[in-house]
């Protein structure tokens, strides 16, 4: 069974067709890098995958549960980091993660264990009792990751998890994603192409609302090779997404 399954997703905002027939399948163990120029429809697609935004056409399901027909079951199996890692700024990290954990059905010792694991894995001990408003961008992002992981979901959808992080933090975030990847289906959107080569098992590139490439990073590079010499992923990205990106 595909943990993430989307077919023919369409979304139009007033007159702009933001997403135009995107289909996507992600199975267990895969880390899919979701690439595209700004405004290509990455975030909109992710919002539809999570059931936050209702598509004009098409379907999406998480672990076999349709995100619109059976939203509660689908959302239970999903961890989602929305764009910009929003959180309740007035709460401390500890209170916020406990709140999300409880909203996800965790309680008592199970909640305590998960919170302890988040402190450890996402490295939050230094800011545990600080209000989120007072955190640096890097820590805010990590809190966003921790709330997405709190219930150990099968499916993770992360919208720009490394945006605004410094190189060390980016490195840590990639290590973390690679470490949790086995046994989960993960979709991450990013602008950073080196990140895709570092952690993704598959690349999906979208442009103007359509999927224009869907392959492993090395297959993508092989296909674009000239005289046996592979171009950089950046060159491939620029040639695929065309004049607009150039």
């Amino acid at each position: 069974m595909q943990l993430v399954q989307a077919s023919g997703l369409v979304k139009t905002f007033s007159r702009l067709r933001a997403v135009d027939g995107v289909s996507l399948e992600v199975s267990r163990g895969e880390v899919v890098g979701f690439l595209g120029p700004n405004g290509a429809g990455k975030s909109t697609t992710m919002k539809m995958l999570t059931g936050f935004l209702e598509p004009d056409a098409g379907t999406a399901s998480i672990a076999g549960h349709d995100v619109f027909a059976d939203p509660i079951a689908a959302r239970r199996r999903l961890g989602y980091l929305p764009e910009g890692a929003p959180a309740y700024g007035d709460m401390t990290v500890a209170d916020f993660l406990a709140f999300v954990g409880r909203m996800r059905g965790l309680a008592n010792s199970a909640l305590g264990e998960r919170l302890a694991e988040m402190v450890e894995r996402v490295n939050l001990a230094a800011v545990w009792n600080r209000p989120i408003d007072a955190l640096s961008k890097g820590f805010k992002r990590r809190v966003g990751i921790a709330q997405a992981l709190i219930h150990d979901p099968e499916v993770l959808i992360l919208d720009e998890p490394t945006d605004g992080l410094d190189p060390n933090q980016k490195h840590d975030m990639r290590e973390l994603i690679s470490a949790i990847a086995p046994g989960k289906a993960i979709v991450i959107s990013t602008h950073i192409l080196e990140e895709v080569e570092a952690i993704c098992s598959r690349v999906v590139i979208i442009d103007e609302g359509r999927v224009v490439a869907d392959a492993t990073p090395s297959a993508l590079l092989d296909a674009a090779a000239v005289d046996g010499r592979r171009p950089t992923l950046e060159a491939v990205f620029r040639s695929i997404t065309g004049s607009k990106a150039a």
């Binding site: 919002k47 999570t50 059931g51 936050f52 939203p71 509660i72 079951a73 959302r75 239970r76 999903l78 989602y80 929305p82 764009e83 910009g84 929003p86 959180a87 309740y88 700024g89 999300v100 909203m103 996800r104 059905g105 709330q147």
Partner: peptide, 14 residues
């Protein structure tokens, strides 16, 4: 404004 609504409404809640 803060975008938390996106997080909140993708939790398993009605």
């Amino acid at each position: 404004r803060s975008g938390v609504i996106e997080l909140l409404m993708t939790l398993p809640v009605r």
